[in-house]
Each structure stands twice: as C-alpha cells, then as structure tokens.
Design a protein around this nucleic acid. Structure first.
Lengths: 192, 192
DNA sequence: TCATTTACTTAACCTGAGTTAAGAAAAAAG
DNA sequence: CTTTTTTCTTAACTCAGGTTAAGTAAATGA
C-alpha cells in the first residue's frame, strides 16, 4: 500500500522508520472513478494528494471550454497550490482520467506536521521547488515552442501521456484544437 | 540599506532581530548597470538575489530570438530555480532593465543556513510556494488567454511593467511580435 | 551638436491554427 | 449484439498574428 509512497519520499528527503510512520498516519486513502473530480474551481483545496495508482489532469474552464494544464501519474503529488496555500477558492479543476487511488493529507495536518517536526518543512520546500521547475518548463514551452514542437517533445519525453491520455486532451494541453492536432499528426506522418 | 529586505522578509516569515542579522550577514551587495547580465544560459546559477532597487527580466534565447519569461522589481527574489537547485547549467538569461542594486546569497550559504537554523527551511518553502503560484498564473495566461487579453490584464494589474519596460519587451512577454502589439494597441485605441 | 542606434508604428502579404461541418472508427452502454 | 457515445480525422473557409519593409520619433553617444 505504501511502497510507492516510500520510494517517492526517499527521493525527496530521507526519513527514519519512525518519521515515515508519523507521516503515513496523517494520510487517508481516497478512490476516484474515471472522470470523477478531486477538486472543482470555486472550492477550497483542503487536501494534498499522492497518486498511488491511476492518472489525473488539471484543467481550466473558460467560456465553457476546457484547457488542460498538466497530467499526473503514479508517484506524483497533486493539489491546487494557490488555493491550498492561501485558502482562496480554486481556479483549477482536477479530475481522474482513469480509476484512481489517492492518499490524501489535510492542509491542517500538514501545517501541524511542519510545526511538530521542522524536518518536514524540507519536504514542503523540495516539493514546491520541483513544482516550480516543472511549471517553468511548461511556461517556456508555451512561450516559444510551436504546437508541433510541443507535440514531438511530448511524444519523445512523456510516452506515458501519449499512451494513457486521449488525443483531444493532449490537443488542449498543447494549446490547440483536436483538428489542428490531427493536421500536425498527418504532417508528421507524411514527414514534411 | 536593509529596510526593503526587512519588510519583504516580514511578509514571508517573522524573524527575531538576531535571526534577521544572521540572514543579512550572508548577503553581499551587487550592482548591475542597465543591460548587464546577472546570469546567462549555460552558467550555473550560484546565487539567489534580492532586488533592492531596479528591475530585471529573465528571458529564453531560441534561434537568436529572445522570449521574455518574467519581469521583476524591487522586493522580489530572483534566480534560476532549475540551475540553483540542481547545479545544472541555466537555460534562462537574467539581465537588468535599469541600473540595479542586488543583495545576493550564495547557494552554499543558504544550504548551510537551512542546516543551521531549520526555521529558514520555511523561508525557502514559502518563497518556492509563491513562485509556484506566479508561474502557474503565467502558464494559465499563455494557455487560454489571447494576446489582447494578456495585454489588457497587464495594463490593469501591473502598471509598473507598462511604465518601466519597453514595448518590444512586453510584446515578447505576451508571446507576440512588436508589430502585433502595435496592432493590438491601435485596435484598443479605436475601441473595437 | 550631429550621427547613430533604439523604440515604435504602419501597411501589404503570408501562414498556420480556429471554425464549421461531416463522417469513420472505436469504445462503452444497454 | 446492437445502439449510442466518444474519439479521431478530413476539408473548406476565416482570421489573428508573423513576415517583410519602410518610416518616424526619441534616446544615446561621440
């Protein structure tokens, strides 16, 4: 049950058996069926979630249209930072792309943990720092790569996304419409 | 000399006089003249910098063209996370848009500080968390706002950028060419 | 002070992604 | 097993932003 979590935490900060158990005690399992939401815009994000099995995406909704921000798989931590940290309503939606098993921690339990065991501040810091790096890659990609470049990079660097996520979601992630992704795929297939 | 720093730190985490002095002792002043670089792609980002006076931007270079990632003013902390944290070569360029006064802290001094005074882990965490929030706003904006919407939002929410940054840099930040920004500005002036 | 560079705008033409509409294929539901 | 829904593709047309080129104004430097 906690094997993947243990492996994931070990890469962030080494913990004693005791510390790991302390951490695990604050987690609760939560299951999502495919398409079920973990969080909706307008709600307060009260929990941070570890993906033990399955797959989530977060997206924005604008004029009735969805825009995919990111896809997450086993071993990732998810939650809306903006809401989780400030207590303001979320602007992102999180939903499951597959049946998913989460291990969730409540905001107040995490804050208590920071207060009780200062060592865990490092967990929070390293987690946030990794999110920064990922988010800045994403910004750079949207800023100066063409949709075709983004698609080829995704194909090469994140094959799991290509295998497990429908193309219309990928199009949205790339910042284009499904029709445009079809065109790009055709262009590439005919290599020109 | 440290008034602005004190005010900025107070918002991140309350420090005793002693702790503040400990922190300040690790800082060194550094001046940049207009257009001077704080960091270039390929270099290792060894310092985190507090902007005491002036203005910086970070940008990416692709096929000889600059793409502005963000603008920073007095009171902001800057540095390339990816390089600072992993020790890998930077991919971003940081340069001064005006004559600028920085207070810089070396990577190893910050790490030593984390080790010596665990309380400062919180500084690192909260700093990173704020960067996450900013970076995700930026991603969202590039993902689903039109260049015109981004321009109007910048005008409204960050007038300082409009006042202190040349339009061609703003165009690049918005993800368009200067000519397109001119068109957008004309369109807005004729309100249609 | 004069020359040069930088900043900004305008206009004509081009291009790639959006839009609309339709249909085929695969997956899910009954 | 059949129907319905979802996923994906194709094609014609539109349009915002890119490209190229030129010109004006302001800032900078010799």
């Amino acid at each position: 049950m906690f094997d993947r979590l243990k492996a994931s935490l070990d890469r962030l900060l080494p913990l004693t058996q005791e510390e790991f158990i302390h951490f695990v005690m604050l987690l609760k399992p939560r299951r999502l069926t495919k398409n079920e939401h973990f969080l909706r815009a307008g709600e307060i994000c009260t929990h941070l979630a570890f993906i033990n099995l399955g797959c989530l995406r977060y997206y924005y909704l604008k004029d009735g249209e969805e825009f995919n921000g990111q896809f997450f798989f086993e071993g990732a931590w998810v939650g809306e930072y903006q809401s989780f940290l400030t207590g303001q309503p979320a602007v992102q939606y999180f939903n499951a792309l597959e049946d998913t098993e989460l291990l969730v921690m409540h905001r107040s339990d995490l804050q208590q943990l920071y207060a009780d065991v200062p060592k865990f501040e490092r967990f929070g810091r390293v987690l946030a720092e990794n999110v920064v790096i990922g988010s800045q890659h994403r910004t750079a990609s949207l800023l100066f790569e063409t949709p075709e470049e983004r698609y080829l990079k995704l194909l090469k660097e994140r094959p799991k996304v290509m295998e497990r996520v429908p193309l219309h979601h990928i199009a949205s992630y790339l910042g284009i419409k499904p029709e445009s992704l079809s065109r790009i795929r055709k262009r590439i297939a005919e290599n020109r």
